[in-house]
Design a protein around this nucleic acid. Sequence first.
RNA 1: GGCCCCGUGGUGUAGCGGUUUAACACACUGCCCUGUCAAGGCAGAGAUCGCCGGUUCGAAUCCGGUCGGGGUCGCCA
Length: 598
Amino acid sequence: MLKSIACGDVRASNIGQTVTLAGWVHRRRDHGNLVFIDLRDSGGIVQVVFNPETAPDAHAAAEDVRNEWVIQVTGEVTKRPPGTENPNLPTGDIEVAAAGAVVLNPSKTPPFYVNEQSDVEELLRLQFRYLDLRRPAMREAIVLRHRVVKYIRDFLDRRGFLEIETPILIKSTPEGARDYLVPSRLHPGRFYALPQSPQQLKQLLMVAGFERYFQIARCFRDEDPRADRQPEHTQLDLEMSFVDEEDVLALAEELFTAVVEELVPDKAVIKPFPRLTYAESMARFGTDKPDLRFGLEMADLSDIAASTDFQVFRSVLERGGIVKGFRAPGCASYSRREVDGLVEFVKSRGAQGLVSIALMGEGGSLEELGQDQVRSSAARFLSLDQVKEIARRTEAGIGDLVLIIAGPSKSTNLALSLLRHEMGRRLGLGDPNLLAFAFVTDFPLFERNEEEERWDAMHHAFSMPKEGHEKLIESDPGAVVGRIYDIVCNGEELASGSIRNHKRELQERIFKVLGYTHDEVDARFNQLLTALDYGAPPHGGIAPGIDRLMMILYGRENIRDVIAFPKTQSGFDPLFEAPAEVEQSQLDELHIRVVPEG
RNA sequence: GGCCCCGUGGUGUAGCGGUUUAACACACUGCCCUGUCAAGGCAGAGAUCGCCGGUUCGAAUCCGGUCGGGGUCGCCA
């Protein structure tokens, strides 16, 4: 080793020892004679003093050194002179008096500050990610990520799970996300696909009798990235045999709770995790991934709206839409400008508009509310009684602002739920140290795809219907509830899972509703269906997203902040500059001809 | 594919039609300085304002396009 101790490990107990350190120059303070260097390595920072009188050669070397140079220093650990201790450093009681110094490698001036946590354009950080990763915020994220994954592995190992790898080169399956394709040299014109998840593989492992499987699995989806989505992401994929929902949920709850309590003890979780059904979640929060750190629950106002003369409401309802709203506490005093801002917010998220009702005044009960206290663009269409009823439903009081959206159910719920989260954020209602995990259960098995006029799988095609719902599969697909569950936390979907079909006949009926022809099923799912014929055990599982879990544990709003080498929103890797063109010979070998765009 | 925001020395920002030889902080270079720890002092170098085109007597500043980044809707079983 080029060092005898890590920079961050030097303590008062080492005083008198001669140590060799190696690391990066974090900061240099040159007093002309005395030179101080804060030397940094993966373990921390320690101050090194270069004295020209006692060590002229080392001092001369230190004069030349600049930020981020890599140096090796040998010297004695000494107690700092009284009054010069630095309480901000764990190593602040001591320093190393350099006797010798060697420059192991100089550095160019970095393109941004490595030694301070200043904001830097993210593209530049990604181009020089290896420098960005030297900074504490990124470093801590990567270290925590390691601990979380290690904890998960140990936790599952103790419970009899086996970690089993599955192929990265697999087969494209229809539906779901767009696949990343890999051309085959040995089979011209044929392609592997990168797995969107090891779904079928883990089910086959259950048929193989492993009973408890998990994998820290990389998953690939060729769709547009987002703040919480990357083209490739990591899942804790796990599957168990001979279980029902309760077994999977109990395990997941125990795991997540333990991870938080052991690794991020300053964050709190709600125990036990609240549970709500999909229908409940949609009704109360307009989304299947509600932020439960605060209330502001939604109320259906359709019946009240129907009794008004407000044409906007009536026409929406005539077309089968809904009218729904929630309260923004204390926001009655919002200015015209602020309210307009909220209107813009929902319009940019698919709503036609926003009706707000401000209940002006301070204190007093709803009963005493006067017409003069109601401020709303729809005021002249609403009777005082109707306003009061709307307030009662949304639990709004004097001083609150009721926000209402009318429109088709899907887009209205979406915009309203985004507005709810936005208001929660603006009003600071979400405790940043609370991780409000919850289970959302009983998802529909099928979802109507209006454009394509067909039924899609809401979750995926392999989930089992709830008991008693099999008979509805063909007659009323939309009414079939699946044995499907999600874990959500603070408005993010963290995990998704289900009890799977282990009977071929049932699985084939579901494929049929999804519109697959016999040939398509045979081509894509034959391996799974055939396996079900050979004694497939009842089984189910769940797949938490590790990146999103890390966002929540580390308190980041961006998935790139918890990934060592992420891609931009256009799927570009600024460090390697991938994707890139390849040699013509490589294309020839793969029998690929590139058609120029346009 | 749609919508919104951003793009000025190395970094972060200011300037938003002429008074700008584009300002400030930090970084950088040189000199001074024996106890600093975001060390300090003095001096200096460094950007034609992402790119293309237009409007104008005059554009970093206005307009259009384009490229790149971010956010979002679509998409993401």
